[in-house]
Design a protein around this nucleic acid. Structure first.
Lengths: 214, 214
DNA sequence: CTTATGCGGAGGAAAATCTTCCGGTTAGGG
DNA sequence: CCCTAACCGGAAGATTTTCCTCCGCATAAG
């Protein structure tokens, strides 16, 4: 993506997107762009040259996240021997990459941009489809507990992404995912309260709207 | 606490603290105080009169949270028939109240205030002691998996508190806690990666320091 | 009924953030 | 190796957000 840039420009662009992803997550989408520049190790000028406004940056981060997530999900599905292991790999990966089903704090903004923007919708759709497949299949195999819906998975993923900054710790989060996975196994089966969170919940969650700021 | 106020003043004070707790959690401790006032349904003047500066408000929220948490933990310990059920009740309750082991986003600030301030340290200590007791006992009973430490519990609690605003949903979070609890049961026992997060981790987590802003 | 106590929010001061612009630096083709 | 188009950093002025005081009006409580 984004070609015809000089090598240093390209590198800086990537640094900026990476820094932005971190900071959007840690501090919300309102972080001062100067802080993004600082974390990326570039000047503000560089940032503004590449991303005319906050939205452009937001879109870039969103697109990158989605692409990674699609790749993670589809690779897991293809390469793992069964649906349960695919699901495990997907969850573990999403935590390692700090990606929710969709990067949650970006949702409200991405959502607006979607109609206008790129093929974001399609990417999102692919992730959702992959997750649905994994769940359905894993339940059919009798490994994933039956009273779980796609929305539940989405919620778990999102929680893992919202780790407070000081706690973001590869090791510790790895343990949390495993605990969650164990809690998802079919052999546990103490009934969950309420109904499974379904596909509609998943969609709602991945398009969460911030409280009316105005 | 805080007496000799006229009835309406008292009421407003409580409204302010409640609003502040929500907003600190949702938007961080830097929310405009005007927004706190708005959510509480009072004028800024009222807020500033009662809490001269942000710190005063922070301290009030922290103290209230801690008190509730202490009460939750100690009540659970006393009233439940065994340690496992006490732990369940504690976790469920902390989610319902939206309280981490300590309200995480408040930590860095509370931590500074602690030496000066009230008996916050003692309250914190009581929570920690209660949690340690529950864990130790539940493991001795063979109900809680053995490769779990206090730090793990603290982390799980914190995750539940950091729900993004749009997802804060009583029902859904209830399901998440149950999944977590199932994952904590001893009969699951697929080994977790790394070592249990111990008491020191717990303390570190409950005193998390924000990244150097300056 | 009186009055001490409390309330709301307008508004000026202060701080944070945005955005542009340009002199200096560097990648990379010739 | 050299030249130049492309890129970089960050100072600085404009703009927006946030702070916090102050005072005329409202009301709880004796």
């Amino acid at each position: 993506m984004e070609k015809g840039l000089r090598a240093d420009a390209r590198r800086n662009r990537d640094l900026i997107v990476a820094a932005a992803q971190e900071l959007f997550l840690e501090q919300g989408v309102d972080v001062p762009l100067e802080e993004v520049a600082r974390r990326a190790g570039v000047g503000v000028g560089t940032l503004y040259r590449r991303f005319p406004d906050r939205d452009a940056l937001l879109r870039a981060v969103g697109e990158q996240s989605l692409r990674r997530l699609v790749d993670l999900a589809e690779t897991a599905w293809q390469e793992e021997p069964d649906a349960w292991h695919a699901l495990c790999r997907f969850l573990r990966g999403s935590v390692a990459l700090r990606l929710g089903v969709l990067p949650a704090k970006l949702q409200p903004h991405l959502h607006q941009r979607m109609r206008a923007g790129a093929d974001l919708h399609e990417l999102r759709q692919r992730v959702i489809v992959a997750v649905l497949r994994m769940i359905e299949r894993a339940q059919a195999d009798g490994v994933l507990r039956a009273d779980i819906g796609p929305g539940d998975i989405a919620l778990l993923m999102t929680l893992n992404v919202y780790t407070p900054p000081g706690m973001h710790n590869e090791q510790a989060m790895g343990r949390v995912v495993e605990i969650m996975l164990d809690g998802l196994r079919a052999d546990v089966e103490s009934p969950l309260p309420g109904a499974p969170l379904g596909e509609d919940d998943l969609r709602r969650y991945t398009a969460v709207r911030l409280p009316p700021t105005e």
